[in-house]
């Protein structure tokens, strides 16, 4: 079933406080407001303990919120039981039913007697075909995996089955709690593409919690950055990467170097700095180390008058002299606090 195109997700003033040790308490959500357009892929990033998972569980109804309102389309959902909410969650740990096969896990909703607020119906002949197609799209050959027991799956395979289960007869919004974290790099990239394809085809909105900037930058239409239970920033990921509103957001999305000029404050993305031959740049530097980090080479340089080394990323390793210069464009300097 394709989701309705106009089911925006709106959150107003979500609050959640957990009782801590003794009389203390921990604020997990401190008034979160969100306005998410239907069918978009929204990534949520933040340090550990910033409230990302609590936000997801609160929206799913699995964690009672202290205050706030949640709307999906015209329907207020915070008053609904978790089972009746038009959302589906993919948990960090796959949480598959061990007594059911892969296919039975994927089509679990067909075993439920009632129809939910999504108006989905009981199992029909097309159900198995849809489940097989989903498994195939997520890289699991149904001929091999459909009848397989959950115990006979690897961690990555389990996570893909959990994704297929969430996508089967999908509701308007999918809540993803780091679903790609258990996967190896090539599988991760393949699954990112598959997720993007499925989202487009089905028109499902996805609210995706992740620690990986690469996932967020590759998948998200909108990136929400959280810190200490609040939304720090919300915008297109490329915009937040290039012009982050604050230092915390900037650091979450990628490496930063201080401007290698003792006379000037600010930061630069490592790929915005250039290593040039001596006497051709703006400051003198000395190469300390270089290492290959996948598609880029990361260089560590010392600049006279600066305690911290400067990071520079470039497509090719610097093969010139250790004594070199650094150059940059003033437009690339990020004035962050």
């Amino acid at each position: 079933m394709s989701a309705e195109p106009s089911v925006n997700l709106r959150a107003r003033g979500l609050h959640k406080r957990f009782a801590g040790a003794g009389r203390g308490s921990v604020v997990a959500l401190a008034g979160v407001d969100l306005e998410l357009e239907a069918g978009r892929h929204v990534c949520v990033m933040g340090h550990s303990g910033s409230g990302k998972t609590t936000l997801l569980r609160g929206i799913a109804g699995l964690e009672p919120l202290d205050a706030g309102e949640l709307w999906i389309g015209d329907q207020r959902v915070d008053t609904l039981a978790a089972a009746a909410r038009p959302t589906r969650t993919v948990f960090q740990a796959p949480a598959l039913f061990p007594h059911l096969s892969v296919l039975e896990n994927v089509t679990f909703v067909d075993r439920l007697g009632r129809t939910s607020s999504l108006g989905r119906s009981r199992a029909d002949a097309g159900g198995v075909t849809e489940a097989h197609a989903l498994l195939e799209r997520l890289g699991l050959d149904p001929a091999v995996f459909a009848a397989r027991n959950i115990d006979a799956l690897s961690g990555g395979e389990r996570q893909r089955v959990a994704l297929a289960r969430a996508l089967y007869r999908a509701p308007p919004w999918l809540l993803l709690d780091e679903p790609l974290s258990a996967l190896d790099r090539p599988r991760r990239a393949a699954l990112r593409r598959a997720l993007a394809g499925i989202r487009k085809a089905k028109g499902i909105g996805m609210l995706h919690v992740t620690h990986h900037a690469a996932d967020a930058l590759a998948l998200a239409d909108t990136l929400v950055v959280m810190s200490r239970g609040r939304v720090l920033a919300s915008a297109a990921p490329e915009q937040l990467y290039a012009r982050p509103p604050d230092l915390e957001t900037a650091r979450l999305l990628g490496e930063l170097s201080g401007v290698p000029d003792p006379a000037r404050a600010g930061f630069l993305r490592p790929e915005r700095l250039r290593i040039v031959a001596g006497e051709q740049g703006r400051v003198r530097a000395r190469l300390l180390a270089r290492s290959c980090v996948g598609p880029l080479w990361e260089h560590e340089l010392a600049v006279e008058g600066l305690a911290a080394p400067i990071l520079v990323a470039r497509a090719l390793a610097w093969e010139g002299s250790e004594a070199c210069d650094l150059d940059w464009d003033d437009d690339d300097v990020l004035e962050l606090t």
């Binding site: 699995l62 039981a81 969650t89 949480a95 598959l96 679990f108 909703v109 439920l112």
Partner: peptide, 8 residues
């Protein structure tokens, strides 16, 4: 939680 989330 997974079963609740799936609407059971």
């Amino acid at each position: 939680d997974a079963a609740i989330d799936l609407g059971a």
